[in-house]
Design a binder for these strands. Structure first.
Lengths: 135, 135
DNA sequence: TATTGAACTTGCAAATTACAAGTAATTTTT
DNA sequence: AAAAATTACTTGTAATTTGCAAGTTCAATA
């Protein structure tokens, strides 16, 4: 595991969080692992919005250093690496859920997201329980 | 009001949200307005983590374009501008609350934040009601 | 054994950020 | 009333980060 120093600007919890995942890509990687079940480098690369290969590599190292994801042996092949969320990473679920709810309320998003947002509104705890059970 | 085009990478709700506030500073500005009651350019500049003046100006324009904050006349002086959250901006509160809870659980943060995180854990709805009532 | 696939790395141009200084319109002080 | 200080920015430039294309290494398949 590569080591990377994360510089924290202050001891404010919001600032601390943003020092870890406050950029345009990190939470999308976490989304892909958490909701789309993507867990190899190649899948994450093709994942969605077209992340550059060097940026993906950089963020994976960073997220691993932050204890949000971990690398494991892939059951199918030695050439593959399995990326998965740690408990700390799984604990980001409530944040993502609130982001989804906010976006759905204030922006046009895709139909599936609307359905998911409705589920959240009905019973947020149940949605979170379901997410955690999958991880 | 200046116009700025925000490029959306996809219609995913998380991606959409990150296209608006997915950077190291935007949510800190929102935090300062929401929780610290800072509402002038100068106050936000001295706000906390040392944002650069051009970046602050840039983000304020962006957040206004996104409908998250609005500019108003300051009651004290014509030289001042009052920045405040719109309802859309206030709706970011649950996201910030979850971020605070996550950081407090997984990182060392300042004592006040711990107290706030405990309040959140006890009764999240009450905390949110209180935040909304202040806005 | 040769080709493909997976997970990266490297090099460089383009964009963004940070720092320092400057400007214009008030407001306060003298 | 004139001078000094505030307030909200803008501008210039260096440093950092990002994005794109190509290359490398090891493993798996033909």
């Amino acid at each position: 595991m590569k080591k990377r120093i994360i510089a924290f600007r202050s001891d404010c919890p919001i600032s601390t969080a943003l020092d870890i995942f406050g950029d345009k890509w990190s939470l999308l990687i976490i989304r892909d692992i958490m909701f789309k079940g993507l867990n190899t480098y190649g899948d994450l690369l093709k994942g969605g919005e077209g992340i550059a290969t060097n940026i993906l590599a950089d963020r994976l190292v960073l997220l691993e250093c932050a204890g949000i994801i971990s690398k494991a042996k892939h059951p199918d092949s030695k050439a593959k690496v399995l990326y998965q969320l740690t408990p700390k990473g799984a604990d980001l679920a409530p944040i993502l859920v609130e982001i989804i709810a906010w976006s759905e309320k204030h922006h046009k998003v895709h139909p599936e997201a609307i359905a998911f947002a409705n589920e959240i509104e009905k019973d947020k705890a149940a949605v979170l329980t379901q997410i955690y059970s999958r991880l």
